[in-house]
């Protein structure tokens, strides 16, 4: 073994980590960075100008409305999921171990099926011959079936159902870390049960609420199947508009533009919500 062999071995050893990581890095690059990058690049390469595609997109009333609607649906979904999820999580966190396990299983159960099946399930429930209408007619509350599908309500119901497990898990997680004695202490010091919720439970649950909200908000912005199945053309969101442009109209310029807009909006939402999280997090933890 000469000095040459030693330096060569050293060089190989030094390079080894990089070499081992190389296949995965290349895969990520090739399968993620390149396609996404080219989509972004495409949207900026209109011969009439770098931002021509975007100018054209936002010039249309219809498109602007789709963007606003997407935000609105994401916001409403998050708000409803927060309220319903908090209620559920509060019950779960306060249950005995066996009940808790069962309740968590039930909450997470929907995640076992795909999003298509879950959204489709709501079509069965809300349809004119669906379970809900049949029940209402059976009970004599209405005479003719109600048209419950293909409007914003149906979309919101489907979306909330889709994301509720995420929210519940985030909230249960944070609620369980709250020492039960804190509730007792607050009550013994004179706080009514609602006061305990307002002054102890809510502030300490805030980080979990923010995490859950981030997950649900960004998820709802991008969801395609639910608005497609339950909303139809009248409830066009960015995701379904993207599908329309790409797969049905074959308007690739518009599709790339929308894709880029969705990426940017999601990133901005993440940043904004993250900043909100920081502002609201309690300083000390016992």
């Amino acid at each position: 073994m000469g000095a040459d062999t030693i330096t060569r071995t050293n060089r190989v050893t030094a390079l080894a980590p990089w070499l081992l990581v190389l296949p995965a890095t290349m895969a990520v690059f090739a399968l993620l960075a390149v396609p996404v990058g080219s989509t972004l690049a495409e949207s900026f390469s209109n011969p009439l100008g770098v931002f021509e595609n975007y100018r054209r997109f936002f010039a249309s009333d219809y498109n602007r409305m789709v963007v606003l609607r997407s935000f609105w649906i994401a916001f409403a979904t998050t708000a409803i999921a927060l309220a319903a999820g908090f209620f559920a999580a509060y019950l779960i966190a306060g249950s005995g171990p066996r009940t808790k396990r069962i309740l968590i299983l039930l909450s997470v159960f929907p995640l076992l099926t795909g999003v298509v099946v879950r959204s489709f399930g709501w079509m069965v429930i809300l349809g004119r011959n669906g379970i809900l209408n049949n029940a209402l007619i059976e009970l004599g509350l209405i005479n003719a079936p109600l048209s419950l599908l293909f409007n914003q309500g149906a979309v919101l119901v489907g979306m909330v159902y889709l994301f509720l497990p995420l929210m519940i898990l985030s909230l249960v997680g944070v609620l369980e870390t709250i020492d039960q004695d804190l509730y007792s202490a607050a009550e013994s010091l004179g706080s009514s049960p609602f006061g305990v919720f307002r002054q102890v439970t809510f502030p300490l649950a805030l980080p979990g609420m923010v995490v859950g909200s981030i997950l649900v908000f960004t998820g709802s912005l991008a969801t395609f199947v639910t608005p497609r199945l339950l909303g139809g053309e009248r409830q066009m969101t960015l995701a379904t508009l993207l599908h329309e442009k790409a797969i049905i109209s074959f308007d690739w310029e518009a599709a790339n533009t929308i894709a880029t807009i969705m990426i940017v909006l999601t990133a901005l939402s993440l940043v904004a919500l993250g900043m909100l999280a920081k502002r609201l997090s309690p300083k000390g933890r016992a």
Partner: peptide
């Protein structure tokens, strides 16, 4: 209920509110 008895309690784990000074 507890919040009407006015008793001062010192808990084993102190139960100090972590988000308050």
């Amino acid at each position: 209920p507890p919040y009407r008895r006015g008793i001062g309690i010192v808990f084993q784990n102190y139960a100090l509110f972590p988000h308050l000074t």
